[in-house]
Structure formats: C-alpha cells, structure tokens
C-alpha cells in the first residue's frame, strides 16, 4: 500500500491546465464557458453515450484518452454513461455499417429529448475511407440526424474536447 501511495505522490497531478492544451484563444474561451453551460443547461453534468457504428477502433482509443489523467474531461462535468437512456449526447464513430444501422437507430430512439448527436471522426462525417457501399451506409447523418461533426482520423483528444465544447455552444442557443 505504501508503495502505491508513494507512486501516486511522485506521479503528482498530471491533469493539465487549460492554457497548456487549449492554446487556441477561441477554444480557451469555449473551455471556460463549458462548465457554465453544462451547469446551466444540463444541471451540472453532461452525459455522453459513445457508440461505435463501424469504426476501425482508432476513434475509440482517443475517446478513452480524454478520460485519462492528462485530459480528464470529467472535471468539466462531462462523463460517459453506459445507457442511451441516461445520455444527453450520442457520440457516434465510424461509417455506419449496414449491420449496425438498426442498432444505431434504436440507440438514438432510446434517448430522452433533448438529445444531441455528434459524428466523431472522418468516417462518421463523410464515410471516410469506407464510403457508402453494400456494407456501409457512409456518414452518420445518412442514418440519424447529426448536430455536430468532429473531423479527424482519428480526432485527437484536444479536437474531441473542442468538438464537445462547440456542441455546448450550439446547445445553449436552443
């Protein structure tokens, strides 16, 4: 136990302050607003349900990273939930494979309004390398309505956080 405590003590706090990873002044402004918006419109917590609709799993790796110690998105009140029933936002990765088409629709329908959909990554935005085919519906918007797109292959953790902040800005106006 002492070894664990020693290791934790020496690792210190890795979570980075906003200016370190959000160098873009515009994004910094968004960052400081995030908590305000989440507090005001989502009662202090924004719940995201991530659904892989056909991705190559690279997007998933980066979504994991924003929950890691360096980014720790939970400190802004944003957290990932296990059920669409608990979610405000559906974060969809991948082109929607035809085999996942119905599952994605059902997941979206299971969410309570108001609900938002983010298409995460190039495949989710426009079909990416896989496009539309006998096996793929292409972009997420071909299957369910999309509120915001986050480009990138895969989007970096910073791009993901920017995207979620941008969605908050949009949601504020609703």
């Amino acid at each position: 136990m002492l070894r664990i405590l020693k290791r934790i003590y020496h690792s210190g706090l890795l979570t980075e302050n906003e200016p370190d990873y959000l160098q873009d002044p515009e994004v910094q402004a968004l960052g400081s607003e995030l908590k305000t918006v989440v507090d005001a419109h989502f009662n202090g917590s924004l719940a995201i349900r991530a659904v892989d609709a056909g991705s190559c799993n690279a997007c998933e790796l980066e979504i994991h990273a924003i929950n890691g110690p360096h980014y720790d998105i939970e400190r802004f009140g944003v957290h990932f939930v296990a059920s669409p029933r608990h979610a405000d936002v559906l974060l969809v990765t991948g082109p929607v494979s035809r085999h996942m088409e119905t599952a994605v629709r059902r997941t979206w329908r299971a969410m309570a309004a108001p609900r938002f959909v983010i298409a995460c990554g190039d495949c989710a935005c426009n079909g990416g390398e896989f496009g539309s085919s006998y096996a793929s519906c292409g972009a997420v918007e071909n299957v369910i309505p999309v509120d915001l797109q986050i480009a990138g292959c895969p989007p970096s953790p910073v791009q993901l956080m920017r995207g979620i902040l941008a969605l908050m800005q949009k949601a504020k106006k609703i």
Partner: peptide, 29 residues
C-alpha cells in the same frame, strides 16, 4: 460481423497508395 464494412471489396481497383490507406484502417490499434 457488425462492423463489416466491405474492406475486401473496397480494395478492388485501388492503386498501391489507396490500398495502404485502407489497410491502415483495418484495425486502428
């Protein structure tokens, strides 16, 4: 089979660079 996105069919007709881009996305990790 849920994430079957037709990679084998999608590869047909591509050039070498196009195939490399597709292969890079067979499994992102």
């Amino acid at each position: 089979g849920y994430v079957h996105k037709g990679i084998e069919k999608r590869a047909i007709g591509r050039d070498a660079e196009g195939l490399a881009r597709l292969a890079a996305r067979i499994s992102g990790d």
